[in-house]
Nucleic acid binder design. Structure first.
Lengths: 137, 137
DNA sequence: GTGATTGCAAATCTTTTGCACTAAA
DNA sequence: TTTAGTGCAAAAGATTTGCAATCAC
């Protein structure tokens, strides 16, 4: 078994090259259970505190960055001043509801892109993010 | 003449519902000359200082926000920690080069979107942003 | 005049960092 | 034991805000 699914959280972290420390496991338990969510550092911090685990804010930020670098999370930036971390790392897109400051996933196959431009000289396309901004009708 | 083109900067600002104050005109002179640019609050602040005009940073931020609200600029957020303001308010998309932290415009017709999903109940689509992340090959 | 706008500095918010301490392997 | 990881507090960076002074009309 070479992929990082269907294992204990500890193994999943090891498999991603991260030591399964108490803090990382606590965050993994909240975020890597297969459910698709969008959390901010702040909301996650509050959730951790509520779950009885105590953790420094700096550690929350560092852990989120480590998970993102390891491909366990995806960082999403929209038109506000903080980052959201998406537990869905599959290719997909987003509705962004600015009124509620809320992201909604859109499966990749619901957005069909024909005719993408070529990347500028010396560059290649890494990924394509489509954000559909919505508002109340 | 009902649109806000082909006028003096002062009239252009008035037309957008903004009093043509010294500060606003100075920023308009730099940004609303028809050229397409991406500036950050910081880079603009430096440019203003270099041009001999003195202006508080808070005023730069406030003015950029006012221009954006008035539709004279467009705020673009990518995966970094500050906002960029795009002087091109026409519909278009972006390459984002994370290595250089640089945005490159893509004309709207170079990206063809077929099959957009419907907005969630009670909402309507306001705009669609496509960001193509690129990296060195 | 008078209401909108600005300057300025302080406040706020998000995020990163340095370093001594602790824990995983 | 050795190295990676954490806590904490401070720093950094972006942006907003409060209020008195100033400016456009």
């Amino acid at each position: 078994m070479t992929d990082c699914d269907q294992m204990t959280l500890e193994d999943m972290l090891r498999c991603a090259g991260l030591r399964p420390t108490r803090q990382r496991v606590a965050i993994a338990r909240l975020l890597l259970d297969g459910r698709h969510r969008h959390v901010s550092a702040e909301s996650l911090s509050a959730e951790i505190r509520d779950s009885g685990v105590q953790m420094a804010d700096g550690t929350v930020y560092n852990t989120l960055n480590q998970f993102t670098d390891a491909g366990l999370l995806r960082r999403v930036t929209v038109h506000n001043e903080y980052s959201l971390f998406d537990t869905n790392v599959d290719h997909h897109h987003h509705f962004y509801d600015a009124d509620a400051d809320r992201l909604i996933d859109i499966p990749a196959d619901h957005v069909v892109l024909n005719s993408l431009p070529k990347a500028p000289d010396g560059h290649e396309i890494q990924s394509v993010d489509v954000t559909i901004n919505i508002r109340l009708r």
